[in-house]
Amino acid sequence: MTQSAPIKVTLIAGGVGGAKMAEGLYHLENVELSIIGNIADDEAFHGLWVSPDIDTLTYTLADVIDRQQGWGVANEGHRALDTLSKLGDDTWMSLGDRDFGLHIYRTHRRRQGDRPTHIARDIAKSFGLECEMILPTDDTVQTRVRTEAGWLSFQEYFVKERCAPEVRELHYDHIEDAHTTEEALNALAEADLIVVAPSNPLVSILPILKVPGILEAVKASKAPKIGVSPIINGGVVKGPADRMLSSLGYEASAFGVAQIYADFLDFFVIDHADEQHVTAINGLGLRTSLDTILMKTRDDKVRLAAALLAVSRVGSKKASEAQELSA
């Protein structure tokens, strides 16, 4: 029996939630996965260019991630950081020895003038990944966080300050001048399904969608678009998304996230614990699906990924039948 053509899935992702969703899709049979990852968390440390979200995706899919903390390499040493600390350097950004090796390679390639997109692709391939790791732009875009003490880089807020200050404003520096990569546009145009991961919508997803041309390409795609809520019963598994949403005037709930995505998604998957939001989310024009969306194990991730494909297939079939009846 001839196997059907693989389903082309384009995942928009950042952070640990994005990496979990990527892992589920990556381990599904007959899926050709492309990932457009967040680069607005990128920053230079010790003269090296660090790309935390892209590296977390790469390490996760290569199965070398430190699963306890959700980022970095498992069984990592910190001798380089110890030396830097002894020399008086500021070492609040914890980078492991093997992690340093990757940042040295990336920085060397960037200084040679290589496209960041090609560098990310080559790193992914060197780690044995059989998916496309795509950057939304080769330009530098950086999320800034305004707190009571003033403006911070995202890593200063997230790592150094441990997300403690109240967020009063977000800004994505240089995003209006960024140029979308052809790879990202092609992945969206050729997708059979576009998935928005259960990532922090404000600092992981919007910095991708706000790169000029990305959101327009998502809307123009004929593929079903499905998102997964990062909020379960008013809270998050990890990270500051709920507090950020509240402090910036959004509702910290599955409904609040649905409001952010309502103008381009077709389907929104929320947890059974948030069933009370179904009517309101449907009122936004989204088709809502209830599921268990907490992903603790690889089996959880693969099961949810398979459920997304099933929801999009069934929903698209019903929409097509409704159009035929109304014609």
Rank of each mutant, 00 (worst) to 15 (best):
I175L: 14
E176G: 05
A178P: 04
A178Q: 05
H179I: 12
T180H: 00
T180V: 15
T180Y: 00
E183H: 15
L185N: 08
L185Y: 00
L185C: 08
L185E: 09
L185I: 15
N186C: 03
L188N: 09
A189Q: 11
A191L: 05
D192V: 03
I194M: 04
V195C: 07
V196R: 06
V196W: 03
P198H: 06
P198E: 07
S199N: 13
S199H: 10
P201L: 02
P201E: 10
V203R: 02
S204A: 03
I205G: 10
L206N: 00
L206T: 02
P207A: 06
I208P: 04
L209T: 15
L209Y: 13
V211W: 04
V211F: 02
P212L: 00
G213M: 11
G213F: 09
G213H: 12
I214C: 03
I214V: 15
I214D: 06
L215D: 07
L215C: 10
E216P: 05
A217R: 12
A217N: 03
K219C: 10
K219W: 01
K219A: 12
A220E: 00
A220F: 12
S221N: 06
S221I: 08
A223N: 04
V228C: 01
V228Q: 01
V228E: 07
S229R: 12
P230Y: 07
P230K: 07
I231H: 10
I232V: 14
G234S: 09
G235R: 15
V236F: 04
V236I: 12
V237W: 04
K238T: 06
K238C: 05
G239R: 11
P240N: 10
P240K: 13
P240T: 07
A241S: 15
D242Y: 07
